[in-house]
Simulated scan of single mutants.
Amino acid sequence: MAEEEAKGLDYIPEIVLKKRKNRDELAFIRKKQLELGNFGKKKKKVSDIKRPEDFVLEFRAKEIDMIRMKQRVKRPKSSPPPVKSDLVFIIRIQGKNDMHPKTKRILNNLQLRSVFTGVFAKATDSLFQKLLKVQPYVTYGYPNDKSVKDLIYKKGYTIIEGNPVPLTDNNIIEQALGEHKIFGIEDLVNEIARVGDHFREVMKFLGPLKLNKPVADVLHGKKQVFSEGGDTGNREDKINDLISKMN
């Protein structure tokens, strides 16, 4: 009996191979969704799933952030500019996955947990030391009385039973701060503007102010300090221009 000729491999069209590849990728995504409890929600793209190299890049970015923080703190200090006001307004303008956990912790302690939130603070050496550590992610300066009033009237709120409540009723302020002779929104604004004896209690009462995202060309995404043409760091009195554009 003659030996049968060896059969060649079956030809598989390219379109079939592509469909198999897409099917395998879809199966991989669904498996991840099930593991994360996200099945039935919006489907993830293949590009949304982090590969090992993505974690490496993120880790390196965080380490670089930590190194630069230490360099800013250890940098030789020139004579600091005179403080023009006891009141500082700080705005978080950047910061996502490239932050070191220590940087994120400082921002959280300042109540700046999300981008485009702002808080009032008393100007102290310890505050400026913290701001130096998180300088690439914040800008700050000395707000005038008009900026303080506009911010509180437009953006001011407190938290009651876990819900944000705007300061439209002076009774809310009196109930919380009446023992400190703060009976209404005007008293509240005055206490903040002059950094009064009960400034700390007022800050505990207020929630961090949620500002509007600025229009194009107001912020350029540069982590250089404001005095060198960037967005971050101390703007001194010019913080009022930024407040008016974000309020």
Rank of each mutant, 00 (worst) to 15 (best):
M1S: 14
E3G: 06
E3Q: 14
E4F: 11
A6F: 13
G8D: 13
L9W: 11
L9M: 10
D10N: 10
Y11F: 15
P13T: 05
I15P: 04
L17K: 15
L17I: 13
K18L: 14
K21D: 15
E25D: 14
L26A: 15
L26T: 13
I29R: 10
R30W: 11
K31S: 15
K31I: 11
K32I: 15
E35W: 10
G37D: 08
K42P: 04
K44N: 10
V46G: 04
S47D: 11
D48Y: 02
P52T: 06
P52N: 08
P52E: 12
D54M: 09
F55R: 13
L57W: 08
E58A: 14
E58N: 09
R60K: 14
M69C: 11
M69L: 13
Q71I: 09
R72I: 04
R72F: 05
K74G: 06
R75H: 10
K77T: 06
S79H: 07
P80K: 04
P81C: 11
P81K: 09
P82Q: 11
K84A: 04
S85N: 04
L87R: 03
V88S: 00
I93D: 05
I93V: 12
K96C: 07
D98N: 10
P101G: 02
P101Q: 03
K104Q: 13
L107M: 09
N108Y: 11
N109T: 07
N109S: 11
R113H: 12
S114W: 13
V119K: 09
F120V: 03
A123I: 01
D125P: 00
L127K: 02
F128W: 13
Q129E: 14
L131K: 01
L131C: 00
K133S: 07
K133V: 01
V134R: 03
P136I: 05
Y137V: 02
N144Y: 05
N144A: 05
S147F: 01
V148K: 03
K149I: 04
K149R: 13
K149F: 05
D150P: 00
L151Q: 03
I152C: 02
Y153L: 14
Y153I: 13
K155Y: 00
G156P: 04
G156F: 04
G156E: 00
T158H: 06
T158C: 12
I159G: 02
I160M: 04
I160E: 08
G162R: 05
D169K: 10
E174C: 04
A176F: 11
A176W: 02
A176D: 00
G178P: 00
G178T: 07
H180Y: 15
L188P: 01
V189W: 07
N190R: 06
N190A: 08
I192S: 03
I192C: 01
G196P: 03
D197E: 15
R200L: 08
R200H: 10
R200P: 02
V202M: 00
M203E: 11
F205E: 05
L206M: 10
G207H: 09
G207M: 13
L209Q: 07
L211R: 03
N212M: 12
L219V: 03
H220E: 10
K223E: 09
K223H: 08
F226Q: 01
E228Y: 08
E228I: 01
G230Y: 10
D231H: 05
T232V: 05
G233W: 04
N234H: 04
D237C: 00
N240V: 02
S244L: 02
M246L: 01
N247K: 00
